[in-house]
Design a protein around this nucleic acid. Structure first.
Lengths: 210, 210
DNA sequence: GTTGTTATATTAACAACGTTAAGTAAATTG
DNA sequence: CAATTTACTTAACGTTGTTAATATAACAAC
């Protein structure tokens, strides 16, 4: 393949090409199949070419994570338009679970794998953006619910509430992803588990009247 | 090293020697450092000798998991003696979290890593044993609480309740293990998160009167 | 006691991985 | 047109998991 002359910011295009190829590999063949050589093959380049765009595999995986975080936030963008905060929280939870269970390998990479901690300074994503930051989306709903007086009187830290709700959903989703085939446990239907954890979160965090 | 004559069931001893060496490696140097060669070095054998006792690395990891599951159940054995089921559930949750957070690498291996599903038939552990099966321990407490009429009227499936409590605890612990260094989220104190999820579970699952 | 046979371990070696070094061809620059 | 730079490739290295080939020691049989 003949080496072309220098290019402007179509370097960026190549970066996203690499990332997309890797993400498709993730989906179709799982984590272990995502090798530098295989990624390169998919885009018609040599494996070493990837190193012209990413310092190492870790950096590439981080970039993939960024893309996935963005995809998650985008998939939740519409539910943020729901006015009623209770309905919005339910829809947000359901959307989160849907993302996790339809993209288990991506979810694994994003939330279940050891990785150099994500630094907002270095990320391409905008923190506290309603369209790019899923955690901010959750925190917004929690804030709205808090302002409307839904939560129990002793609950004042919106971060703490948000992280607890997240933990509940993440617990169900991640157990489903990594252990649902395990015969040791008599697993209940995933829908039932998702429904109950949401109910429990609501009941546990909110005032009785609700 | 001179090859000794055949041995009886001190083969078993060698197996546990390998497993223990690997587990210590897990603790001290993390998942990536656990290579067949490094394990072998620790026990003074050649890497290929391990294959006389385990089919492959997966089988060894599964055996390590078994040992860890047993260790978890053992660490919870004493709390099972608590008579009051509410106190017992609290103690069980706290013990579970303590295990997870003091042995994060083991916890990762047990509950957060892709692995051939554990088949009770092949496991060395006894299912439904109060001393070897942590899930059974949880289910027992849930059953006791259910029998004593603590749970809301619409909750009848003890498996579903147990799995939901588990998911809540697992959610907090696993997020702590894999994301606590992440700067994107303004993480609250882990103790506060553990306390709140337990409260929420109790309130969410049990009758108001409690 | 020599001879097999078997069990236990070793060293060599392979394929696949991430990654670095060295080399090559096209465009740009003086 | 020579020199440099850019974008890539192929070779190669070190480390993995794993298999093949080999060696050594005990036991059994005659």
């Amino acid at each position: 393949m003949p080496p072309k002359p220098k290019t402007e910011l179509e370097r960026q295009h190549l970066r996203t090409l690499i990332i997309d190829a890797a993400r498709k590999l993730f989906v179709s063949r799982g984590v272990d199949a995502v090798t530098m050589r295989e990624i390169a093959k998919r885009i018609g380049y040599s494996a070493t070419s990837i190193y012209l765009h990413f310092a190492d595999k870790e950096a590439l995986l981080r970039a993939i994570c960024d893309t996935d975080f963005l995809a998650l936030a985008r998939s939740l963008k519409n539910v943020m338009l729901i006015v009623n905060p209770i309905d919005r929280l339910k829809a947000l939870s359901n959307g989160y679970a849907a993302f996790a269970l339809t993209h288990p390998n991506h979810y694994r990479l994003m939330f279940m794998t050891e990785r150099a901690p994500c630094d907002p300074e270095q990320s391409s994503l905008q923190q506290n953006s309603a369209e790019q930051d899923a955690y901010y989306q959750l925190k917004t709903v929690v804030s709205d619910l808090h302002a409307a007086g839904y939560f129990r009187a002793d609950l004042k830290d919106t971060d703490l509430i948000a992280q607890t709700i997240w933990a509940g959903m993440h617990g169900v989703c991640s157990l489903q992803i990594s252990m649902s085939e395990d015969k040791w446990v008599n697993w209940c239907n995933i829908s039932a588990r998702l429904q109950l954890i949401q109910q429990v979160m609501m009941r546990g965090l909110m005032k009785e009247s609700t």
